[in-house]
Computed example of a mutant assay.
Amino acid sequence: MSLPTILVTGADLADQALAMLGDFCIVYAGKAPTEDDLVALAREHDPVAIIVRYGKVGAAVMDAAPALKAISKHGSGTDTIDKVAAKARGIEVVAAAGANAVAVAEQALALLLACAKSVVHLDARMHAGHWDKATHKSLELAGRTVGVVGLGAIGRRFAKMADALGMRVIGFDPFATDLPPFIQSVNLPTIWREADAISLHCPLTDENRGILNAATLSQCRRGVIVVNTARGGLIDEAALLAAVRSGHVMAAGLDSFVVEPMAPGHPFQGEKNFILSPHIGGVTSDAYVNMGVAAAANVLAVLARQSAVAV
């Protein structure tokens, strides 16, 4: 009797996760699977679960796998999964919430510091033989206000680090409860109005798509720093480009973009005061293991629960 299949929309999975899934046949879709790739693999192997690393899982993929019971995200953001289609088909969608919180929060802090301290610019100048000590002034973060949008595991971890730097932390999250005392809960207009730096840590939804746009950026303090390690769709990229060029936004540190991978010739490339990284906030050796183990555990929990219901 053949083992049930789990489809991984990636090229690998942590050994620790694989050890948990020994009763399953693991099929990999590769580093950059298209929807057609996933449909073909789902039709061929009829997986009972999909662990989502890359690519999008929509209704067509689900319909190609009649045995599918669980879609487990290798990470916290589930915007690449059609949750409405999954619910209609009785397929549970689960995320490895918090598994990469430390990694992403540290990346957000690194981007914030790089923007405030002109790290990339000064490094380039030094390598070119310049010594700008007499002319350069960076930004001191202690005593300044950071606005954190999204106060889940990642946002709270980032807020804790910002507080340790001596920053005043204000945050917005309509679903957050039991906030630590160093986070002051406020509404979004207060963040736009009072923050010297804004860091985005919320999931992407239809309601908050483009939450940072020309109108909201115009409400922000001149010289604000924008950091995004969440989802690129939270930002109107054309509006941010204009705001940085005008000096209204001092700098932007971005780890996520509307279209990924970023296409050659993107307007941000080569642009002054943009510090970019290729959506690697959660890509550390520790987070890789944590996310894989959590994704595997979520699959096993869903399958066990559905088996119990079937009995």
Rank of each mutant, 00 (worst) to 15 (best):
I6L: 05
D12Y: 12
D15T: 10
A19G: 14
Y28V: 00
K31Q: 13
K31F: 12
P33S: 05
P33G: 04
D36A: 15
A42G: 08
R43N: 07
R43K: 11
H45D: 08
V52I: 06
V52G: 00
G55Y: 09
K56H: 13
D82H: 04
K83L: 02
V84M: 02
K87R: 13
V93Q: 03
V94Y: 00
N100S: 09
V102N: 14
A108G: 15
A116D: 02
V119E: 09
A124M: 12
R125G: 09
W131E: 12
T135Q: 15
T145G: 09
V146E: 03
V146I: 15
G150T: 03
G155H: 13
R156N: 06
R168E: 14
V169R: 02
G171C: 10
F172N: 07
L179P: 03
L179I: 01
F182D: 09
I191Y: 07
I191W: 03
R193D: 14
R193M: 11
D196R: 10
I198N: 08
S199N: 02
S199H: 01
P203F: 07
L204M: 01
N208R: 10
G210Y: 10
L212R: 14
C220L: 03
R221H: 10
V226I: 15
V227L: 08
N228C: 07
D236L: 11
L241A: 13
V249I: 12
M250W: 14
A251K: 04
H266G: 03
F268R: 06
Q269E: 15
S277E: 13
S285A: 15
N290Y: 05
A296P: 03
A297D: 12
S307P: 07
